[in-house]
Amino acid sequence: MQTKRMTFNHRYLPYLLLAPQVIVTLIFFVWPASQALYQSLLRQDVFGFKTEFVWFDNFTRLFADDQYLQALKVTLTFSLGTTLLSMSVALLFAVLVNKLIRSRDVYTTFLVWPYAVAPAIAGILWWFIFNPTLGILPYALDMLGYQWNHRANGNHAMLLVIIAAAWKQISYNFLFFLAGLQSIPQSLIEAAAIDGAKPFKRFWTIVFPLLSPVTFFLLVVNVVYAMFDTFGVIHATTEGGPAQATNILVYKVFRDGFIGMNLGSSAAQSVILMAIVVLLTVIQFRYIERKVNY
């Protein structure tokens, strides 16, 4: 990696400058992560008296555990649902806003602020709207003859947390899509229009393919968001229920570790999650390198 051609010479100053960041990283990131790796190979008995080295037994148990497999499935549904919902709504908004000139900034202002709302608060807002006894949506659905109850119905609960998580992320996706759309040369679109392509066709054959770097980037970011930053949405509303229907992986790690006190299993789950983050980060960075050349 490059430095400047000309640099300062100093024996210990650079280490001093790096020290705060590196010390925090070692104490609060690297050390706990290595502890998780180590603990994932151990098992404690119920009373915490005896600790046994069990190799990969915690992992094999996890993958034989129906609840864990269920949590994997739930996480997959939740991440895909959140990503697709949030990205498609944001893309629609971005395409429409991009058509306008004078009112572009006004709409942008109205669409960016949900980014500031914490996931837990987003969860509570939608929890309130969907509240079966006084919420506004169940009331409307009831008039259509549909009974809404996310406290008993797992699908309802899943839909609720997906909407809450996606709502908060619309702003982010919107801003990136809008920036992407603005970088597409107008002449390409005009050329297609002269050739007789209608708006719908122009979008799918020209605009959408040219947006694909942005779309792919957002896909990764949104999956990361849905998997790791939505703890608050779940914890403040459904708490994983009903009947584990919204028990996503990060929530399960927390629950097994702090409430179930099952340290070996929780550590093994942490290790699996770390592997997922590493994988997603590698994908993201490989892609970014390519984009620089693009």
């Binding site: 990283t25 990131f29 706990p32």
Partner: peptide
């Protein structure tokens, strides 16, 4: 540089229990 880079890959959510212990 790589030590700093590591923090990207270790969000609090995935190492909750041991970080709490520290």
């Amino acid at each position: 540089f790589w030590v700093i880079f590591l923090t990207l890959m270790l969000p609090v959510e995935v190492r909750i229990v041991p970080t709490f212990q520290v």
